[in-house]
Design a protein around this nucleic acid. Structure first.
Lengths: 211, 211
DNA sequence: TCCGAACTGCACCCGTGGTATAGTTCGCAA
DNA sequence: TTGCGAACTATACCACGGGTGCAGTTCGGA
């Protein structure tokens, strides 16, 4: 086993990333100093630059990790939901409910979206990082779009909507809802938006006629 | 006419604000240097600090101006829409369409939302600024909520939804849609979300039965 | 003529990102 | 047991730029 590069699992490295993530979500990337990170983690400057040749490399690693984690979370979520219900529509509705519940204890559960944070400081980053961000968003779309295709086969839409747009809507509501929650300090706001979206999806595929 | 304080309409002041707004939306507040602002506007450092005693005062003025403008825009929008249609629901639907059209040429029309930008760097600002931000959001809610109350009187909702949440949804979609648009560089995304929201509102108050 | 609004010009300090380099600890493999 | 390389520490240094303060200047209007 040749193990040349610094092991990605190094405790120090993840420690830096953890610290950086919370700091960036609070103050933004530019205002997050390397100094503050290393004192928090308990290392020296040399140690930092051993793991990241650049502040920009830190940004990239941060965003990559965030996107990967989010991915995992959704794969897991849908797996659980589909276990409970094999119908594609009702499985999705269950997943939305689970999602709303997970987000109930903001900001502990979700202190902010790094994608949004990067978006509002994108000129700080190289194209590489910005592209990574776009990939993250398009991943959401693809994931939900394929699900909607499945659903639409069984439940012909009662409202004529573009399914890509419907997929994007969930991402938009998530990002927007997080912002509203943070600004108003109202934890219930984000889950409420997910449940509203759920109502919409139900109306699209099942209509509003009496059950 | 006693004209003591620096005239708020001073060209220099608004010039600084204009420059700062675009810069902040691109790079964030911390990364926006005073130096870059004054060279762009063509003044010296002293000139800047004549208008703003502090960088933080600049932030406050920036956000205040942004919220005021947005307010004006919506008052105007609803006035126009209600001229075209006196029914509260259909007036609202018209307003949403107008809004979608206005946002069609992103990012020229709307390079970003300052409220969202501040949200993701809130630890940089004093409570005063953060509170200002919350007021901005709650303003949206109140505006749309009262409208929905009006609509609901005439059109009993076909889907049981909390009208405050329905009001918040528009703000969330706006902020979220802007983020998606910026990240994916797809101008059509934001207007599409507004139109989707419109479909939802219609379904809530009119149902999905054949027209 | 003179006052104050709206600046200019300049000097200052310190935090920060980044570089360099020499030395230290420690676990693992031969 | 040795030794090598990963993962650091310790220190020193630099250039830049952000934030601040203040004294002086321009200029239009009462």
């Amino acid at each position: 086993m040749t193990e040349t590069r610094p092991r990605r699992g190094s405790e120090t490295r993840t420690g830096i990333l953890d610290q950086a993530e919370t700091a960036v979500l609070e103050k933004g990337f530019a205002a997050t100093s390397i100094e503050e990170l290393i004192t928090a983690v308990g290392i020296t400057k040399g140690g930092f630059f051993y793991h990241f040749k650049d502040k920009s490399e830190l940004a990239q690693a941060l965003l990559q990790r965030y996107i990967d984690r989010e991915n995992e979370l959704f794969v897991d979520l849908f797996a659980r939901a589909d276990e409970l219900n094999e119908d594609p529509l009702h499985g999705f509705l269950v997943a939305l409910k689970l999602l709303a519940e997970m987000m109930a204890d903001l900001p502990n559960a979700h202190p902010g979206c790094l994608v949004a944070s990067v978006c509002y400081q994108d000129q700080l980053f190289k194209r590489e990082v910005r592209d990574l961000n776009a990939v993250g968003i398009l991943g959401w779309r693809r994931r939900f779009r394929t699900r909607f295709d499945l659903i639409a086969e069984r439940y012909p839409p009662r409202i004529e909507v573009d399914l890509d747009h419907l997929a994007d809507m969930l991402a938009a509501l998530a990002d927007g809802g997080i912002i509203l929650s943070k600004v108003t300090k109202d934890k219930t706001l984000l889950p409420a938006q997910f449940m509203l979206y759920r109502d919409f999806v139900r109306a699209v595929f099942l209509g509003t006629d009496p059950t």
